[in-house]
């Protein structure tokens, strides 16, 4: 048995004494214990990858993330080509009403109660829904991360003041605030985005603050301070990358929530009445859900898949940015 031999072999005193004397011969180098191995050896990753490429490679190796990315790209492409593929107003009446999908070749996804092309509506709706979803999230994340990291990192009175402000926003019911904001401003894609950002940043801020408070106490942050790093460097280079995982997951949920909020606003007739969005399509189709369910189902499907794609991308990003995890996948 190999183990037995290994033990007897190693026990042999002559052997070990021989190796001990051998080891005591002066090393050629000036260091006495150069390259002293630790008792525990670790697997060594031999390939070194330039910064940034490793993350990308890990992301692209992840089939779920790739699926999400492809789907979202298709949606973005649809939004971009909408004016070319379907010139003219998607709200214009172009055919007979209530054509079911597949009933007439000119309208592959049918028409609604007013004879509007559903496919054109989906393409043009993608413009509004994606714009609102991404803009609102970017704004909300920007404000939320800034406020949250300042509060969490500095603590003390800065924290007190910022948390009070966050709390003011959080005590107001989200959707009511949104409705009020949109009602005050002219409803347009931009104002709706800003309004959604205003109601969604406090959650990001709270989350960021909690992460920062926990990571702030870690030894590597103390080490960074002891090395004389300045606050911005510590916040953005040391703490933020480690606080990202929950934030990325939240961000993908936020895009989804923003699309849904916009849909809800449009559904209630508070969106911009002059443009079509997935939400407004669902809103218009809701009364006909029993006779022409495809009118709500198709834009609903678009929302569901976009949200799913965003979640997959978020998870993939999170794994890719974590060196430990992305190595395990490789």
């Amino acid at each position: 048995m190999t183990t037995e031999t290994a033990v007897t072999h190693a026990v042999s005193p002559i052997q070990s004494r021989a190796s001990a004397t051998q080891a005591e011969k002066p090393d050629a180098s000036q260091w006495h214990n150069i390259k002293a191995p630790d008792a525990r050896t670790t697997r060594t990753a031999t390939v070194s990858v330039p910064a940034g490429r490793r993350e990308l490679a890990a992301f692209l190796r992840n089939p779920n993330a790739l699926f999400g990315l492809v789907f979202l790209s298709l949606m973005v492409a649809a939004a971009l080509v909408a004016p070319l593929a379907f010139p003219g107003d998607p709200l214009g009446m172009v055919g007979k009403p209530f054509l079911w999908p597949g009933q007439e070749a000119a309208f592959p996804l049918g028409t609604d109660s007013m004879g509007r092309n559903v496919l054109a509506g989906l393409f043009h709706g993608a413009r509004i829904s994606l714009f609102v979803g991404l803009t609102a999230t970017a704004l909300g994340l920007g404000v939320g991360i800034t406020v949250g990291s300042l509060a969490g990192y500095f603590g003390g009175w800065v924290d007190d003041v910022l948390v009070r402000i966050i709390e003011i926003f959080q005590t107001l019911p989200n959707f009511v605030l949104l409705v009020v904001l949109v009602a005050i401003a002219q409803p347009s894609a931009t104002t709706v985005s800003v309004a959604i950002a205003i109601v969604s940043w406090p959650m990001v801020a709270r989350l960021t603050r909690a992460e920062f408070r926990a990571i702030r106490e870690k030894d590597y942050v103390v080490a960074a301070r002891s090395l004389g790093f300045r606050h911005p460097r510590i916040i953005f280079k040391e703490i933020l990358p480690n606080a990202l995982p929950p934030l990325i997951v939240t961000a993908s949920v936020m895009v989804a929530t923003a699309i849904l909020m916009e849909s809800a606003l449009s559904f209630m007739g508070l969106g911009d009445p002059n443009v079509v969005s997935w939400g407004s399509m669902i809103g218009n189709g809701r009364e006909l859900i029993r006779t022409a369910w495809y009118l709500t189902f198709l834009p609903g499907l678009a929302i569901v898949f976009t949200v799913l794609a965003l979640n997959l991308i978020g998870d993939g990003l999170n794994d890719a940015l974590n060196p430990r995890f992305s190595e395990e996948r490789s």
């Binding site: 910064a51 870690k218 030894d219 590597y220 103390v222 080490a223 960074a224 002891s226 090395l227 004389g228 790093f229 460097r233 280079k237 040391e238 990358p241 480690n242 940015l321 974590n322 060196p323 430990r324």
Partner: peptide
Amino acid sequence: QMIFQDRFGSLNPRKSIRDILEAP
């Protein structure tokens, strides 16, 4: 300078060793 007790917490897990040494 200071050396910390290593309980997995004294090195930033998201940075390569070169980045950790280069930043100072």
